[in-house]
Design a protein around this nucleic acid. Structure first.
Length: 293
DNA sequence: AATACGTGGCG
DNA sequence: TCGCCAAGTAT
């Protein structure tokens, strides 16, 4: 059988066509890589890039971010989405400052112990910031492996153990080469082997792709759950937080009430934001971003 | 294992 | 227009 996703081919292709992203520059340290990985969770590159540049200038080290207020961090997160990530990154920066001498850990298990860092991000930091040989599995890699190796139209439901094992066997021996290979796998899924309309004519491993050989069968697995947004609590929470991000300081209950008409849903979402620590109530009954008063 | 969690671009 | 999709994590 032909070699699937050949490392020499993949890395050669990556060196030629990879996007010039700021967190891939040689002078970008582990902190920059970590910040980028958190911001990129479920969020497109183009939206992340300008915010990442602002953050690196403003908070060039974990301790610099840790010294900021939660409110400043949430406001600087802007509209990247899933703002709990901002709070968790701030908490991770605090832990790195106090427990790890202001140095982003390189060990996967240590990384996993930090807030907001899961199976993907821990391995992404170990590989991309520290050049380690460890499988890095995100949605792009799952799709590339599903097609090129398994001949399926798309990846089935995630299974951490199986997904990691799938990539482990592909990984070349040497550390830094394996890390570059991991980046190449992700890049292929991001710009060529994309979900909707794959650009197979531009694919460096077209001739060994199991999906091509199988005649490009359609995805046969269980239907993926479609996420609604309009009218959901997520939208309402977003509206509420948007009021606070745009305000210079604490706001009144009436200002928050204007953000959504349904009182029951509004109250429920405000409560959940208070529980999450994304909003605080001030002593005089106003509402603010955490620490923003 | 399913579900909650933001936001906006694109076909 | 509107559903799909984007470098996931926590519970």
């Amino acid at each position: 059988m032909s070699v699937r996703l050949d490392p020499e081919v993949m890395v050669g292709w990556f060196d030629q066509v990879a996007r010039d992203l700021p967190w891939r520059r040689p002078d970008c340290g582990a902190w920059g890589v970590l910040v980028s990985e958190i911001m990129l969770q479920q969020t497109p590159v183009n939206r992340v890039q300008p915010i990442w540049l602002e953050w690196m200038e403003r908070w060039p080290t974990p301790s610099a971010l840790a010294a900021a207020s939660q409110g400043d961090v949430v406001r600087a997160w802007g509209k990247l989405g899933y703002p709990r990530r901002a709070l968790r990154l701030h908490a991770a920066a605090t832990a790195i400052t106090t427990d790890h001498n202001d140095i982003v850990p390189s060990d996967v298990d240590t990384l996993l112990s930090l807030p907001g860092i899961g199976e993907y991000t821990a391995r992404a930091v170990a590989a991309f910031a520290y050049g380690q040989r460890c499988p890095v599995v995100d949605t792009n890699v799952r799709r590339v492996v599903a097609r090129a190796v398994h001949g399926a139209g798309d990846a089935g439901p995630p299974s951490t153990k199986r997904d990691l094992a799938d990539v482990e066997v592909l990984l070349p021996k040497e550390d830094s080469f394996a890390a570059r290979y991991s980046a190449a796998l992700m890049e292929l899924g991001a710009i060529v082997c994309v979900a909707r309309t794959p650009r197979c004519a531009d694919c460096p491993v077209f001739d060994t792709c199991a999906w091509q050989h199988a005649g490009r069968p359609a995805y046969a697995g269980p239907a993926k759950a479609v996420q609604k947004f309009a009218g959901t609590d997520r939208q309402v929470r977003g509206r509420l937080l948007d009021v606070l991000r745009d305000a210079p300081g604490p706001v009144t209950r009436a200002q928050l009430d204007a953000a959504w008409s349904d009182p029951g849903q509004r109250d429920r979402c405000l409560d959940s934001l208070l529980v999450d620590g994304l909003i605080e109530q001030t002593p005089n009954g106003l509402f603010s971003l955490p620490g923003d008063h």
